[in-house]
Computed example of a mutant assay.
Amino acid sequence: MSRQAILDEIQTYADELIAIRRDIHAHPETRFEEVRTAGIVAEKLRAWGLEVTEKVGVTGVVATVQGRRPGQRAIGLRADMDALFIEEANDVPHRSTVPGKMHACGHDGHTAMLLGAARYLSENRDFAGTVHFIFQPAEEAGTGAPAMIRDGLFERFPVDSVYGLHNSPGLAVGRFATRPGPVLAGSDFWGVTFRGTGGHGGAAPHLATDATVVLGQFLLAVHTILPRNLHPTESAALSVGHVSGGAFNSPNVMPSEVVVRGTARSFSPETQATIRRRLKELAEALAGAQGCTAEFAYDVLCPPTVNTAEKIPVAKAAAAAVVGEAAVGEVELSTGGEDFAFMLREKPGVFMRIGNGEASGNLHTPVYDFNDEALALGSAYWVSLVREELGLDA
């Protein structure tokens, strides 16, 4: 069957994929709570004749299809299922029905695209080997991929290579992009709790050790770490995302404790270590100068996402078979994070980007929505990838 014929066949059930995607979008589930989503995935896969294993890594689902031709090789295709803690602002029929949660990163679309490929490959098994469809929970927490791996993902479902696919707002629908080597940064969380005595901010501020002064100095000092500790050409990101302290209804009370939390992104263990060390040193030194204390925490979430160079031609050829070589480009290095990195540390593979268009809103914003025009293209890419790895063209 020709590559165009594959896309044409997937288009015949594109409306069903759109309905699945919008249903998942309307009922978002966050980290390790993807029970309803996983149930939909498992039900569809079984109806299409695939072998299904549920509760891999808590709420993950893995489905398997065997090709009709003899062959021992196997590949894994991975999609994420979880949503974010964001209140949706879109006025659409499939708007989130869950307060404070929405699919603001397109995992609903990723799930639907992989389902489309699973249906096609179950009905068209003219390939040699095995395909494992990996539906992963908790990507946004950076803990879903490790949970599946700890649960024996690659021992129970052995693969020779593994591939991921993520939508990209700003990249036109009908375009794909990736790059060899590092493609996304390692992602970490950090936090500091500053403690002082607190006190009466009006009557006796001179009797207090003021944690808010330390906080103010620290917030400024954080942004000196990268430009004054890393080589100017070294890429990294360091941001503050949470500050809390005191009681809103007691502005005359100096808090005895304030908290600041943020994220750090880096592409090497050396850079990560430098950021971690300097955050701790600054927190403790600034706190000590004001008679306060600092409790520092640094949580390593996921490593950099590093594509396997020798698999790049395979992934690009698969995309080009769907949209043409001219529509397959190289994505810029990004300090975004992705826990698919854990899978790429275990097996060779590629993390590919698919265009989501200009009007879809940015990722992780209340106005984002997955572009349904990309669904069939993404499913066709997965099928084309199987043909490249396990098919007659391999």
Rank of each mutant, 00 (worst) to 15 (best):
M1E: 13
L7N: 01
Q11T: 14
Y13A: 03
E16L: 08
R21S: 09
R21Y: 00
R22L: 06
H25G: 00
H27E: 04
E29M: 12
R31Y: 10
F32N: 11
F32M: 06
E43P: 00
A47M: 02
T53G: 00
K55S: 15
K55E: 15
G60N: 11
V62T: 10
T64K: 05
G67Q: 07
R73I: 05
D82Y: 11
L84Y: 06
F85M: 09
T97W: 00
V98G: 03
H103N: 07
A104Y: 04
G106P: 07
T111Y: 01
L114R: 11
G116C: 14
R119F: 04
T130H: 05
P137R: 13
A145F: 00
R150Q: 15
R156G: 07
Y163S: 03
Y163H: 14
G164A: 10
G164D: 09
G164M: 05
N167M: 13
P169S: 09
V173C: 03
V173I: 15
G181D: 10
V183M: 14
A185T: 08
G186P: 08
D188H: 02
F189L: 14
V192I: 15
R195H: 12
P205T: 10
H206K: 02
L207N: 05
T209N: 10
L215K: 04
Q217S: 14
A236F: 01
A236H: 06
S239D: 08
G246H: 10
V253D: 06
M254L: 15
S266Y: 15
F267P: 12
Q272Y: 00
A273G: 06
K280F: 00
A285M: 13
G288W: 13
G288V: 05
A289P: 02
G291H: 05
C292G: 01
A294N: 01
F296T: 11
P304G: 09
P304F: 01
V306T: 15
K311S: 02
V331Y: 08
P348G: 13
P348F: 08
R353V: 00
G355Q: 08
G357V: 14
S360F: 01
N362W: 13
H364F: 04
T365H: 07
A374Q: 09
L375M: 06
G378P: 03
A380D: 14
Y381A: 01
S384W: 03
L385D: 01
V386E: 10
V386Q: 11
R387M: 14
